[in-house]
């Protein structure tokens, strides 16, 4: 599975006093954290805490206003190929077939053996029967599975997931969570935002608790849920946090 150039790693991802503001309003401030290889980190917090923004900054879609967020390999790329990918809350499906969506991503990212890898990906996630269907006519769950498979096909070392199940029904949510478990076992480093406490409990190894644009807790999942350090986190875990 691993390509030769995966011998080197883009991790860790390190943030130093990273901040982001729009006008006078700080949406993220003084963020310091490090993402190491091989775990699922969840960015937990209520709506509007800045979780999506956090992931976009890590993925490089936007740049921090202050401080820095850096990969150990420049731009998170090795041999000119970006080794981190992202799946969005609402999957962006191109107006073409499911398989053509994979082909497009592989080609755009400059990956080799495009056709073979598209087929392998469909096979890997049991999407063969959807291959020829227009991606935009798939159900919400199928679209998100395809989006996850598409990201996986790029062989990222790190995969950012922005609330991947928030718009799905319980059945589809389970399928996505199973896929995430598979990726975890394969050794992909995952960073996932969620506001779903139960999901964080099920999947995460580590919790970054985000509230009003600040990381106020950074601990292992078991520690976080056993004894949250802040009153805000306690209230959130208890389901009492009003933002």
């Amino acid at each position: 599975m691993m390509l030769p150039d995966d011998a080197s790693t883009i991790l860790p991802l390190t943030a130093h006093a990273a901040g982001y503001r729009v006008g006078e309003k700080w949406l993220l401030q003084q963020a310091n954290f490090t993402i190491q290889a091989g775990r699922l980190t969840t960015i937990l917090g209520p709506n509007g805490a800045g979780k999506s923004l956090f992931l976009r900054l890590c993925h490089g879609l936007i740049s921090p206003s202050t401080g820095s967020i850096t990969w150990s390999a420049s731009g998170g790329a090795i041999n000119g190929r970006k080794r981190h990918a992202m799946v969005f809350q609402k999957p962006v499906m191109l107006r073409r077939s499911a398989r053509a969506n994979l082909i497009h991503a592989l080609r755009a990212a400059g990956e080799p053996q495009i056709q073979a890898r598209a087929d392998e990906t469909l096979e890997r996630f049991g999407l063969n029967h959807l291959a020829a269907q227009p991606a935009r006519l798939l159900s919400g769950g199928e679209q998100q599975r395809l989006a996850l498979a598409r990201a996986w096909s790029l062989r990222p070392q790190v995969l950012f997931l922005d609330e991947p199940t928030s718009q799905l029904d319980p059945g589809a949510t389970r399928q996505i969570e199973e896929m995430i478990e598979v990726l975890k076992r394969e050794g992909v480093t995952l960073v996932m935002s969620t506001h779903d406490i139960a999901q964080a409990r099920r999947l995460a190894d580590r919790v970054l608790f985000l509230h009003k644009g600040a990381i106020i807790e950074d601990s292992t999942t078991s520690e976080f849920f056993k004894k949250p350090a802040t009153t805000t986190a306690r209230a959130f875990v208890a389901g009492d946090l009003l933002w």
Partner: peptide
């Protein structure tokens, strides 16, 4: 506006995004 984040994530920005956008 719809494709921006996905294409940027794939490194297709500016002129490189044009063929994808025209086709879609």
């Amino acid at each position: 506006a719809e494709y921006c984040e996905h294409l940027t994530s794939l490194g297709q920005t500016g002129v490189r995004a044009i063929p994808t956008l025209l086709w879609d």
